[in-house]
C-alpha cells in the first residue's frame, strides 16, 4: 500500500541545511497497523507530512496504492489527499462552526462526492459510535467524542491509509484506550492505519513499530524490509 524508496528531504536553514530525511525505505502492506516512533528531531514529522501528501520529498519515490505520488503539484497532492488519505490530528482539528455531521461530510464535498454524502457521513459517525451526536457542535462534545468525529471524518472517504498524528496525545488515559480500541476495530476491518506517536504504550499496541533516528529507519519492524 505504502512504498517509500530512498526518500530524502532537506530544509535549507541559515545555519546550514538540515537533513530531515536521509534515505528512508519503508513498506507498509494493505491492512497493516503500524506505529512510527522516534525522538523529536528524528524526522518523524517530516516523514508524516510526506506520507500524508502534504509535502513532496526532494528525491526518492513514494508509491501510494500503486500510484507514484512523489512528484506531484500542490493541486494533484490535494486530490490525492482527498481520495487516499484520512488524517487524524492530535488536537482533533474539527471545524468549530460545523456540527459533527457537517465536519464528517466535508471531505466528501471536497472530493466532489456529493451524491449521498450526508448518508455516508452519518454511517461513518455510526461506525465510531456517535450516531446520537450527529447534530452536536465540537464545543458540545468531549475530547474523546471529538476525536471519534475526527476519525469518522478520516474514514468517510474510504481512504487507502488512515494517518494519525499523536491521536491520543490530547486525551486522558481512559479515553486514550477507547480510541485505541476504535483503531483496533478499524484495523480488524482491514484498514491500513499508520500512527505517529512517541507514546510507547500506543506504539506497542501496533503490529509493528518503525523507529526513526537521525532521518533514517533504524529498527525495521517485523515484515518490513529496508
Amino acid at each position: 500500500m505504502v512504498q517509500l524508496e530512498e526518500i530524502r528531504k532537506t530544509f535549507p536553514m541559515e545555519a546550514g541545511p538540515v537533513y530531515a530525511l536521509r534515505g528512508v525505505n519503508l513498506h507498509i502492506k494493505r491492512g497493516e497497523m503500524v506505529a512510527i516512533t522516534g525522538s523529536s528531531g528524528s524526522g518523524k514529522t517530516t516523514l508524516m507530512n510526506i506520507l500524508g501528501c502534504l509535502s513532496s520529498p526532494d528525491s526518492g519515490t513514494y508509491r501510494l496504492a500503486g500510484e507514484e505520488v512523489s512528484n506531484l503539484s500542490q493541486q494533484q497532492l490535494a486530490t490525492i489527499r482527498s481520495r487516499r488519505i484520512g488524517f487524524v490530528f492530535q488536537t482533533f482539528n474539527l471545524l468549530p462552526r460545523l456540527n459533527a455531521l457537517q465536519n464528517v461530510e466535508l471531505p466528501l464535498l471536497y472530493a466532489r462526492a456529493t451524491a449521498g454524502a450526508i448518508d455516508r457521513a452519518r454511517h461513518a459517525l455510526e461506525r465510531v459510535g456517535l450516531a446520537d451526536r450527529v447534530e452536536h457542535f465540537p464545543n458540545q462534545l468531549s475530547g474523546g467524542q471529538c476525536q471519534r468525529v475526527a476519525i469518522a471524518r478520516a474514514l468517510v472517504n474510504e481512504p487507502s491509509i488512515i494517518l494519525a498524528d499523536e491521536p491520543t496525545g490530547a486525551v486522558d488515559s481512559v479515553t486514550s484506550q477507547d480510541i485505541m480500541k476504535l483503531f483496533h476495530s478499524l484495523h480488524a476491518e482491514g484498514r491500513t492505519i499508520i500512527i505517529v506517536t512517541h507514546d510507547q504504550g500506543v506504539a506497542a499496541q501496533c503490529e509493528r513499530q518503525i523507529v526513526l533516528k537521525d532521518g533514517t529507519v533504524t529498527i525495521p519492524g517485523k515484515g518490513g524490509n529496508s
Binding site: 490535494a78 489527499r81 471531505p107 472530493a111 471524518r153
Partner: peptide, 16 residues
C-alpha cells in the same frame, strides 16, 4: 489559518 490548514489536509483544493 489553522482551519485553512485542516481544510487543505482533508482534501480542499486551493480553489475551494
Amino acid at each position: 489559518t489553522r482551519e485553512i490548514g485542516v481544510r487543505k489536509a482533508i482534501g480542499g483544493q486551493n480553489k475551494d
